[in-house]
Design a binder for these strands. Structure first.
Lengths: 144, 144
DNA sequence: CACGATACTTAGCCTAGCTAATGAGCATGG
DNA sequence: CCATGCTCATTAGCTAGGCTAAGTATCGTG
């Protein structure tokens, strides 16, 4: 009981510290295509959705529009994402992954030699299952 | 089988995206004492260890020494951490939490009205257990 | 006691967030 | 039919948090 209570009380702290340290470690080993986490995540969303406006992408990624402008700017510089004008609304812009962007995404999806993938391979199947479930919970918490 | 294989293949991506979105969401709701994650994490390590040199703290937090200099600088400005000279080695410095720092830490440890704690309270016990286990795994991965 | 190694900091750079302000385009009410 | 107000994206400017490289002081040793 006491142990359970303590666990619940300190879970926020434990989780926060674990995540920040994990993030720092993972950042050092730049993933596929020398893209940052933010860039990779935005590219993933775009790839899955097909095409989005900056506003939609920002909402999906849980950032403010100006932040997304920056991230998309970087991706566009590298030719991974293209901006095209909206057909009927001159204010909006349509974002979509280019062929090269799709190639990077595909590479990333099964980059088994990448740092994180290697780490995950070393875990037991049960541990991977735990992480998969935790990822789903974290997404849900972020959404709420 | 196929599903398992796919899960293993895409876990890296899933986990990365979940963590980045969670982090962004959590950052918006600044935790206790208006401290950032980095500052809170450093304060936690210091608190648990009692006293550390900047190098030790940097190693523990998985950052480079100059980064820790900055973080400690912020904490010192707020009077949460004190630098004292090392008794025998003039090059080194001893970092320790001040009384105020310990108070903030204690507050943080059971801040059940904080955004993240509230979110966690809404989960089922099984989900919290999953997150607790995942936190341990992430720490281990970050260490390796 | 000079010289290399170590500890911390400083300097300078980048990414990634944010808010506030700007400018362009849409839509609507008189 | 156009003035006015809203929405969308971007720009400007700020902060935090990373990094490497260089600087400075101190230690320890040959």
């Amino acid at each position: 009981m006491t142990a359970e209570r303590t666990t619940a009380d300190t879970l926020a702290k434990t989780l926060r510290d674990a995540i920040i340290r994990f993030s720092r470690r993972a950042r050092q080993a730049r993933p596929v295509g020398d893209l940052t986490f933010s860039q990779l995540s935005a590219l993933t969303s775009l790839q899955l959705a097909g095409a989005l406006t900056p506003r939609e992408l920002a909402d999906m990624e849980r950032v403010q529009p100006p932040t997304m402008t920056k991230i998309v700017g970087k991706l566009e510089e590298r030719g991974l994402v293209a901006r095209t004008p909206h057909p009927t609304d001159g204010r909006q812009v349509i974002l979509a992954a280019t062929d090269e962007g799709r190639a990077i995404y595909a590479l990333h999806e099964r980059a088994r030699n990448e740092w994180l993938a290697v780490q995950l391979d070393r875990l037991t199947p049960e541990e991977r299952e735990t992480l998969a479930r935790a990822a789903e919970i974290l997404q849900r918490v972020a959404r709420g």
